[in-house]
Amino acid sequence: MSTVTASDRARLSAWRVYVRDLWERREFAWFLAMGNLKARNASTALGLFWWILNPLMLAGVYYIVFGFIFSGTREGEPAFLAWLISGIFAFTYTSTAMTSGANSILANSKLLVNIRFPRMILPVAALVEAGVGFLASLGIFYVIAWPVNGIRPGLSLVWLPLAVTLHTLFNLGLAAATARLAVPFRDINNIIPHLNRLWMYLTPIIWPMAFIEAKAQWAQNVIQANPLFPYMALYRKALMGRELDPLNIWLAIFWAVVALGVGVISFVRFEGNMVRHL
């Protein structure tokens, strides 16, 4: 029989215990994520396909707008569609992590009130859900990029695990941060979509690098300071065999550590007070 004492304060300071508790609950996180994945589109005809179709349709819209209508921005990028799709898929992973992270605590208030468990399970499950959708969408990248742009899977794919891992850690930090903020400040849910849209336009997704290289040095510096920039560079290296400035690897590690540190620490420190806000 286990003896548990209820000093939350002591438990919160014990990070090793926290991580162990979290690890022991990994099956729950997985079932929660898969359950939500399944439930989300349970009553639609296409069901799980929406996880791939949604970013694909978004890419289609931007392809029409920036590939044909405002086609000036695409100049200098021979494989624009592949560039666009890889960018949109990766960005969707981050934006989904933020929105479902922000929802993860509020949508599961019944769980929080009734059961004691390390609350990080909930943003983790939200991230797993987003990550599975992202990996599924990656699977169809070459289905489009090969026939349209002649981009085939190559040796550079060895970079993909690194790109996905660092990007996932970064997204987990964001999911934890938005989850923590959304509990006392529901307003966050209204702000996130707009922030995300702005962020997307500031990231090399709908415009290629040539577009920004023509701009002033300060503008280039600002774009480089965008935390998503190094992840995009990693994905373009892995999926399209583009050149990779080694600086971007360090930047990707740096932003992952910062996001994870700030997000998870602020989340866990707030944990004990969450139920009061529900």
Partner: peptide, 9 residues
Amino acid sequence: LRVLARTMR
């Protein structure tokens, strides 16, 4: 009960 369940500090 929430305090006993230790979901509320």
